[in-house]
Design a protein around this nucleic acid. Structure first.
Lengths: 207, 207
DNA sequence: TGTGGTTTGTGAAATGTTTAACATGCGGTT
DNA sequence: AACCGCATGTTAAACATTTCACAAACCACA
């Protein structure tokens, strides 16, 4: 592939996949139909898919089962992924019980906290371990994905430890912007910033 | 202002603000220093700020207190915003106790659920109300921002109700992509999609 | 008042992404 | 086997965003 894939195309792929799940009973779906299901333009649907290969048949559209498998393969969600959770507070607990993860092949395998009141507790079948065991456990289990839902204070250190343990991809719910090596990725979910974007929208709308 | 503001500039503004908070003790800060604090380029810092006005002094930089106030005004976080929370499950409860919101002037004023076991409970000083009261309460209280942390099933209906009640900005944690009128905004926080982006990164890295 | 050092604000270029438009290719039909 | 209709894949244009590079502006100091 010569062309680079726009970052935004990847989450769109996830949405196309969801749309395909809704198209049961049919064999083929056109970019036009996917467009209506996802609210992206038909041209964008076709363009996005061609970033990754040629999946359609002119005159017919995309064979649904084949395209589903192809997208799973591209995203890597045809495999199961083990995930470590750091921080078993309110948010961490909520994430542990979030149903959507398991559905797409993500399994939280171990959870960690530094709060003695939480360590040893079992939530959703996972026993919360002392954070001092983080590096050893994660590296032994070969976990590559981690979710950080700790307080802000220890977050950079937690992320450093995760990287040392071999984690390559992190979903970070703390407001810090961590420094990480090139070969790792951190996606930040920053709730305050999202609310501020909403406030900006409301403020601007009035002006 | 002739030039349109890129969508991505707004969250960067939030990050500049945070960087300014860390620059205590100084009066002025340069785009170069802000660049180092935020990992954006100095040119981007300057460009972003000029989307909203002229805040700097050539040769000196940006006066910190003035710039802080300016950003607060732009984002609308100089005011307090009341927020409604729909869905008092694990995630909703976690959001209720999330400290970062209050800090930036967002206050969850009321919470709703359709589960009889949750209705009437008081969490963080907020009593969970029956979702049937959603439209009336939210419209009476004049709330403009809502967080949706319900299950997938009722989500579109919840969002429709919020819009009817006058809500203009929604932070949506469910995986649905809601249809809303032009004058409203919905920001989607889709945890499965974020994990899938991570899986894509890991899968691609190997290839 | 003039000069030097510094940093902004901004045209212009470079880069990246989306949309438009259509030639190409495929399947079905006669 | 040839034709028709349809939807893909792709080329080119349009649009959007970021980076570059420098003139203009300001301050400090002599």
């Amino acid at each position: 592939m010569i062309n680079k894939v726009p970052q935004a195309a990847v989450p769109r792929l996830s949405l196309y996949y969801r749309a395909l799940l809704e198209s049961r009973g049919k064999d083929y779906v056109s970019s036009d139909e996917l467009s209506k299901l996802t609210n992206f333009t038909a041209a964008q649907v076709r363009r996005d898919l061609t970033y990754f290969g040629q999946f359609g048949t002119p005159g017919k559209g995309y064979e649904i089962e084949g395209l589903k498998k192809a997208i799973l393969g591209i995203l890597g969600t045809d495999k199961n992924w083990d995930v470590a959770l750091v921080g078993a507070g309110n948010l961490g607990t909520a994430l542990l019980s979030y149903k959507g993860f398991k559905q797409q092949g993500f399994k939280i395998l171990s959870a960690f906290d530094n709060d003695l009141r939480k360590i040893g507790k079992t939530l959703e079948g996972i026993t919360v371990q002392d954070i001092s065991e983080l590096e050893k456990t994660v590296s032994e289990q070969g976990i590559q994905i981690a979710i950080v839902a700790t307080s802000t204070e220890g977050a950079q250190e937690v992320i450093d430890t995760l990287i040392r343990a071999g984690v390559k991809a992190i979903l970070n719910f703390t407001p810090i912007r961590a420094q990480t090596p090139e070969e790792a990725i951190v996606l930040n979910i920053d709730l305050s910033i999202e609310l501020e974007r909403l406030a900006y929208f409301l403020t601007k709308a009035k002006a």
